[in-house]
Amino acid sequence: MSVAALSLSTAVLILIASAAMSYGLLLLLRPLLLRYALALPNARSSHKIPTPQGAGIGVIAATVAISALAALALDGIANGTLWIVLTATIGIAIVGAVDDIRPVPVLPRLLLQAAAVAAILIAIPADARVVPMLPFWPERLLLGLGAVWFVNLTNFMDGIDWITAAETVPVTAFIALFGVFGATSPTEAVVALALCGAMIGFAPLNRPVAKMFLGDVGSLAIGLLMAWMLVELAGRGHLAAAILLPLYYLADATLTLLRRLSRGETIWIAHRTHFYQRATQNGFSVMETVTRIFAVNVVLGLLALATMIWAGLDAQIVALACGVALVTWLLFIFNRGRASAS
């Protein structure tokens, strides 16, 4: 079964089912999270009132359940890769859930994340090569390190209302769309649609001012799923698209990490120095900030789509250059504040 054979009605059904399940679960979970998983404001947080965290439980439960049900209902989807990826997702979500309630020390947390990443790399076919000039195992090691970083940066970037939805919805929507060009498998398309729908179901409850936060249970698992899909995309020869889709997140988180390292700061301690956090400190409202991030992510998705339509090296270089310029502009605007946007 090709992704193109995944009809529009089927795709819409997966989206709606996942959104409805996610939203319904979150309504049921909210009283429990209010009692046991309340995030209290502190000097480093962006919220001002106690807010329940752990909404990722509903988002990931809906993603896993709808992915599994769709796989069983559609020919050619239920395979070893899917079950490995969903199991790893559940595993890292459990790590995040524990960390939401009682913080897990850094080293055990990283080791458990690395185990989940190793599982998704095992699930990726051996002939899926991102950097073919490297020997297989050094390449896989580099991909593993990159995926662990992506899992953590997704967690680090989940610092204001709606930002993870503004990232995840465009990325997963475009990954599902790329199936028309054979760039994603039916398995990836189904999981992308399920995750996209689950985040849409979460969005009304996370709209500023949020009634619920994802928590580590959600952000870590979302990072893992997106890392898997992006590595698969790059492994099919679409490296430019795999870089473009998450480029804002990659740039904001990585530049912030390098800046903090240069200052000798403890990088795993919560802070408020990401570019999107600076934006809210420099005159932009949360809605203005996430709207700009969402718009940039949509344009990045269109640039990634352009590399599918015009597959030559020149087109990929032009698309990457445009993406870098766009993200650089947004980071500059966020860093300088509202005056620079006028």
Rank of each mutant, 00 (worst) to 15 (best):
D252G: 10
T289F: 00
L239C: 11
F284V: 10
A251F: 15
P246N: 06
F284R: 07
A306N: 08
A295P: 13
A234R: 10
T307S: 10
E265G: 04
G312Y: 00
W310F: 12
L230P: 11
A270H: 07
L302Y: 08
E265V: 02
S285H: 14
R260K: 07
T289I: 02
T254R: 07
A321H: 06
A234V: 13
V290P: 14
I267T: 15
G283V: 09
V231E: 12
W228N: 13
S262V: 09
G283I: 12
R259A: 09
T289K: 00
L320Y: 11
G312T: 11
A279N: 06
W268C: 05
V290F: 05
G235D: 05
L255C: 07
T266C: 13
M287Y: 11
R263E: 11
T273D: 13
L245W: 02
T256V: 14
F284I: 07
Q277L: 00
Y249K: 12
W268P: 00
Q316L: 07
I317H: 06
W268F: 13
A251H: 11
A234F: 11
Y248H: 12
D252Y: 06
V298S: 03
G312Q: 06
L305H: 09
V286L: 14
G237R: 02
N297C: 01
G301C: 01
L258G: 00
L300G: 02
A279M: 06
A315P: 07
L313Q: 15
Q277T: 01
L261F: 09
L261T: 00
Q281W: 04
I269W: 05
Y249L: 15
T256R: 03
A321C: 14
A306P: 01
I317T: 11
T266W: 10
D252T: 15
I293Y: 08
Y249D: 06
A234L: 08
A251I: 00
A234Y: 03
M229H: 08
G312N: 15
Q316P: 05
T266P: 12
G235K: 05
L244C: 06
T291K: 15
A311P: 09
R259D: 04
V231A: 02
V299P: 04
T307K: 04
G301I: 03
Q316C: 10
A319P: 00
V299C: 03
G235A: 11
V231G: 09
V299L: 10
Y248V: 12
W268T: 12
R263C: 01
L230F: 10
L258N: 01
L224V: 00
M226S: 10
A241W: 09
I293S: 15
Y276H: 12
A241M: 02
L225S: 04
G235N: 01
T280I: 14
L225C: 08
T289P: 03
A295D: 13
E265K: 15
A315E: 14
A270P: 05
H274C: 03
A240I: 02
L244P: 06
T291E: 13
W268N: 12
A242Q: 13
L245Y: 03
L305R: 08
V231S: 03
A253F: 06
Y248A: 10
S285F: 01
L239Y: 05
R272T: 03
A251T: 15
L224E: 02
L247N: 15
A242P: 12
D314Y: 12
L258D: 00
F294T: 14
L230D: 03
A321F: 05
A321N: 05
L233Y: 00
I243G: 09
W310T: 10
G301F: 04
S262R: 14
I267C: 11
M226Y: 08
L313H: 15
L247Q: 14
